[in-house]
Write a protein that binds this DNA or RNA. Structure first.
Length: 821
RNA sequence: GCGUGGGUGGCGAAAUGGUAGACGCGGGGGACUUAAAAUCCCCUUCGGGCAACCGAAUGCGGGUUCGAGUCCCGCCCCGCGCACCA
């Protein structure tokens, strides 16, 4: 029993019992359909999307709840502002995570995933999220992946899906394809064997065709700059030139026939290109290799193919071999040797480079190892043409050309253009924009994913599965373990694998690869509002009303790939006329990470927060509010178990104040002033996701409210219930009901801010002398400089610091007075 | 290496160029209680002082400004991402 200076109500309506009111409101919301969105009729639609979770067997992670709660507050706030808010949540349940876990514990994913989802659903419901569960989805359900396959077929139709050989990680001991995350420091995570590259025929999407658009559209999006920058870097645009190096004919002159194309961002350094390097996999290598070099080249290519695709270490010593052939430098007309080396990547540019050891660090290292000539063609401010190089000189901003014929003395920036133009006139170069972005490999030689809807026919070639035949059901096979064939386990199931060719009817074979999980998540936001429409992936009218997504919140780990893929899919569907927008997420914010007691949470450390236990002990409302209070939402925070008690105390005080609130008398103007200042602060902070400061402001208000031995007035408390509701929805509903309302607090509107009520009549004016604080004055808000100055000088504590004549007075009305002496 | 976000009390953190440390945890003291828990009140950046007060302080060194945690230049350290991208 409380013995506070606030008297206990005589008709004690009971203390705050989170367990009781939370289960009450869970049932109410479900029975009343409070969280079900009126998709067709709702006005001012607002689509508040959060990244869907992978339903792990361990259950909901506190990081998931942190993310979802932040989104929930944002969505509930918009609902209170009068929007019809749609806040769906589903499960990203296909993929390597589930499959690996299933393999480890020996439970089939088709049994495991539904169990996990049921557990997630239970935990999510306890968290009090305003999720419309009638429109959930599960990427592993045939009614969902039917349309994932449909998306693949649309790209195929557009010529944006194609097959080519691509590198995969191969463990020679386990004889299986490994995902990149299963390769640790170049070795198989299971057995430790060094991983090799293998080249398999795989499906790719031509996302690189969209590089320019994906880059340019970023400017107009309301995304955080860090996310935009991450995308820009990933797309990796660079301006440069494609330069053709003709092969040397044997007599020092250029041969006719196919030239070697290189991409360079430094055409200005071409006079310093003293050799060339091709990637070991470059298609011209065979042709360029002379008989004398054939054995060495073959050995080198073999060795480099054995390297894993993931971890090519930066600081290793450069290796390579001479092909025996020469090419002609189009600037100097001199023959230069053609080498192969694995520091040149086939995937970037043309797979071949002109090597300028004087001005590129990698080329310099290589030239040092193999004794190749190093020529200076750019001089810094203190260098001459003959200043020796003791490393690559790469400071191009300060450089001028030397040893470059008629281009000597030109600054680097001008020389880039001049030399490109000069070479172009001689048909040896053209300016090009190159992108780092590669095409998206969507093939997975795995079981747990949507089968790629293609049928191979010996007569007709690859044929798309007709849309009417979708979905291509993933069969329930007991042995889903990958084997040493290098193809998906699906290939072992003849009854599934053999199928009639949709074109000629003869026996064909199904594609046995499944698609990347990123394809599942590349379009799911289009599906949510149309869940239940079984004849189409998304309904045109609903999509026009609800999309693009108004607000998207998710983890930084998806800031690059997932968002890029989703943008790409959206762009393609837009171009095909299915969508009226080409950018799916109008606004995106990444939330931070939760750590615990200063360390990352991990099972091995045993410091993983179990949300169930905390909700059990403290209630979901306290747990949610604490998660939002422990740090800035976009940065994350440090979970300390003891910290939650402060938030719980805050909610207890609100409960008590509501129970005591009276309608007798009038509200206190000073309290009302603070209330309206709090309304302003919370209204300002929520859209900025500054939840921690919004909560702090509400706590501050509660501290003001309970000062003095007075019974709070209803008008002082009731709006607080609305402010708190997005954070602590159950107590929000309960107190709102106890104030006599019969509709949900979330349909009650947001408390109105009254600037007149909020205005302070007196302010604390800081008085500085030479910028040092020497006192404060309690003065009228609109005091003049003269009056403030007089008051300040009348204070002995201030006046004593004014030792000489005042040279200057700085006055910031209502804030500060600075006397400069 | 490149990119990116940070560095503020014992701890989590606040601060449109204008009173650094709001709010909360923890700690100390007190009230209530037979007692404890809960609750309430006061104190809590550091140094000096009985105190009024004085001085120092936002990773380090400079600069701009009447005034800098905030802006500029040069460093150091930590987290995250990418990693030979020509």
């Amino acid at each position: 029993m409380t013995t506070s200076n606030i008297p206990v109500p005589s008709d004690d309506s009971g203390g705050y019992d989170p367990a009781a009111i939370e289960s009450k409101w869970r049932e109410r919301w479900s029975a009343r359909g409070t969280n079900t969105t009126d998709i067709e009729g709702g006005e001012r639609p607002f689509y508040a999307l959060m990244m869907f979770p992978y339903p792990s067997a361990e259950g909901l992670h506190v990081g998931n709840l942190f993310a979802f709660t932040g989104n929930d507050i944002y969505g509930r706030f918009h609902r209170l502002q009068g929007h019809t808010v749609f806040q769906p949540l589903g499960y990203d349940a296909f993929g390597i995570h589930s499959e690996n876990y299933a393999l480890k514990v020996g439970v089939h994913p088709m049994q495991m995933i539904p169990r996990n989802i049921a557990n997630f659903r239970r935990q999510l419901e306890r968290a009090g999220l305003m999720v419309d569960w009638s429109r959930s989805l599960d990427t592993t359900a045939p009614e969902y992946y039917r349309w994932t396959q449909w998306v693949f077929l649309q790209l195929y139709k557009q010529g944006l899906a194609y097959k080519k050989k691509g590198a995969v990680n191969w463990c020679p001991s386990d004889k299986t394809v490994l995902a990149n995350e299963q390769v640790i420091a170049g070795a198989c995570e299971r057995c430790g064997t060094l991983v090799e590259q293998r080249f398999l025929e795989q499906w790719f999407f031509r996302i690189s065709d969209f590089a320019r658009r994906l880059l340019d559209n970023l400017d107009a999006l309301d995304w955080s700059d860090t996310t935009k920058t991450a995308q820009r870097n990933w797309i990796g645009q660079s301006e440069g030139a494609r330069v053709a190096f003709r092969r040397e004919a044997g007599d020092g002159s250029a041969a006719t026939g196919e030239a070697i194309a290189v991409f360079t961002t430094r055409p200005d350094t071409i006079f310093g290109a003293t050799y060339m390097v091709l990637a070991p996999e470059h298609p011209m290598v065979d042709d360029l290799t002379t008989d004398d070099s054939r054995a060495a080249v073959a050995a080198y290519r073999d060795a480099s193919s054995r390297q894993d695709v993931v971890a090519r270490k930066t600081n290793k010593v450069k290796t390579g071999v001479f092909t025996g052939s020469f090419a002609i430098n189009p600037a100097t007309n001199q023959p230069i040797p053609v080498w192969i080396a694995d520091y040149v990547l086939m995937e970037y540019g043309t797979g071949a480079i002109m090597a300028v050891p004087g001005h590129d660090e990698r080329d310099y290292e290589f030239a040092q190892v193999f004794g190749l000539p190093i020529v200076r063609v750019v001089a810094g401010p203190d260098d001459s043409a003959t200043t020796p190089l003791d490393g690559a000189f790469t400071d191009d901003a300060a450089g001028r050309l030397v040893n470059s014929g008629t281009f000597d003395d030109l600054p680097v920036a001008l020389a880039k253009q001049a030399i490109t133009t000069w070479l172009a006139e001689r048909e040896a170069a053209e300016p090009v924009t190159n992108y780092r972005l590669h095409d998206w490999c969507i093939s997975r030689q795995r079981y747990w994913g949507p089968p790629i809807p293609i049928i191979y026919c010996d007569s007709c070639g690859p044929q798309p599965v007709p849309e009417a035949d979708l979905p291509v059901i993933l069969p329930d096979i007991p042995d889903f373990r990958p084997d040493d064939s290098g193809v998906s386990p699906l290939a072992r199931h003849a009854e599934w694998y053999h199928v009639a060719c949709p074109n000629c009817g003869k026996q064909g074979r199904r594609e046995t690869d499944v698609s990347d999980t990123f394809l599942d998540s590349g379009w799911y936001f289009l599906r949510y509002p149309s869940v239940g429409h079984d004849t189409e992936p998304f309904d045109a009218e609903i999509t026009r009303k609800w999309l693009p997504v108004d607000s998207y919140i998710g983890g930084n780990e998806h800031a690059v790939l997932h968002l890029l893929y989703a943008r790409f899919i959206t762009m393609v569907l837009h171009d095909m006329g299915y969508l009226h927008f080409e950018e799916p997420f109008t606004r995106f914010r990444a939330h931070g990470l939760i750590i615990r007691d200063g360390a990352k949470m991990s099972k091995s450390k045993g410091n993983v927060v179990n949300p169930d236990a905390f909700i059990e002990q403290w209630g979901a409302d306290s747990f949610r509010t604490y998660l939002m209070f422990l740090g800035p939402y976009e940065e994350g925070g440090d979970f300390r178990d003891a910290g939650i008690s402060g938030v719980r105390r805050f909610l207890e005080r609100l409960w008590l104040a509501s129970a005591l609130a009276t309608e007798a008398g009038a509200p206190d103007p000073a309290v009302m002033r603070k209330l309206h200042q709090t309304i302003a602060k919370v209204t300002h902070d929520i859209p900025r996701l500054s939840y921690n400061t919004a909560i702090a402001a509400m706590m501050e208000y509660m501290n003001v409210l309970r000062k003095g031995e007075r019974t709070p007035h209803r008008d002082e408390v009731e709006p607080m219930v609305q402010l708190v509701a997005p954070f602590a929805p159950h107590i929000g509903e309960e107190l709102w009901e106890r104030f006599g309302h019969h509709v949900s607090v979330f349909d009650s509107g947001w408390p109105a801010f009254d600037a007149d009520l909020a205005r302070d009549e007196t302010v604390q004016l800081a008085v500085q002398v030479n910028g040092k604080l020497r006192g404060t004055l309690s003065v009228a808000r609109d005091i003049t400089q003269e009056a403030a100055l007089a008051l300040a000088l009348a204070e002995p504590g201030i006046a004593k610091h004014v030792t000489g004549a005042m040279r200057k007075v700085i006055f910031v009305p209502g804030r500060l007075l600075n006397l400069v002496v």
